[in-house]
Amino acid sequence: MSPEYAMEGVFSIKSDVFSFGVIILEIISGRSKNSFSEPHFSDDIRAFAWAKWKEEKTLEFLETSLRGNYSENEVVRSIQIALLCVQDDPNERPTMTEIVSYFNSSSEEVPLPQEPILSKSKKMEYMTSKSHSINDSINELSVSTFLPR
């Protein structure tokens, strides 16, 4: 679920891009998004992928049964594209057209991803710093606020 939908109830075409990125990460790692046993990666496949990307050990993210049967450049490029798809800010995510282009052309330059906001406190900080409030909707959808009696 994209951060903007989870935190604000706002859905857009970039929400699908986020989900697509998570699926790419799951396929490459051979794990579901919540199956990490390492304590500091326990709730987010993005944290594990980003850590391996930052350490320049992206091939350690790869499913062990696939090792030896892959193109190193294609795996690294796929992880880079997936990390672009799971950016917290929807404006920083590529469009599906751009993603298809990245996968179809090995010569096309893929932008470098930014570090995702991984902790819940950082997510809240990010969401409160956004220019519109939680009750505003940029997609002409209403957001209901429930108050106790």
Rank of each mutant, 00 (worst) to 15 (best):
P3N: 04
E4M: 06
V17L: 03
V17G: 00
F20H: 13
G21Y: 04
G21V: 04
V22S: 05
V22R: 04
I24Q: 06
L25Y: 04
S29K: 05
S29R: 06
S32R: 15
S32G: 12
S35F: 07
F36E: 07
H40L: 11
F41L: 07
A47P: 09
K52I: 03
K57N: 13
K57F: 08
L66W: 09
R67L: 05
N69E: 08
S71R: 13
E72W: 02
E72R: 13
V76W: 01
R77Q: 05
S78I: 01
A82N: 03
L84T: 07
V86A: 04
D89L: 04
P90F: 04
P90D: 02
N91W: 03
R93I: 04
P94L: 01
T95F: 05
T95L: 07
E98W: 01
S101G: 14
F103I: 15
N104K: 15
E108P: 00
V110F: 04
L112V: 06
I117W: 00
K120I: 12
K120Q: 11
S121T: 13
K122S: 10
E125Y: 14
M127F: 12
K130T: 09
S131V: 07
S131C: 07
S131M: 06
S133D: 15
N135Y: 13
N135D: 15
N139E: 10
T145F: 10
F146G: 12
L147T: 14
L147H: 13
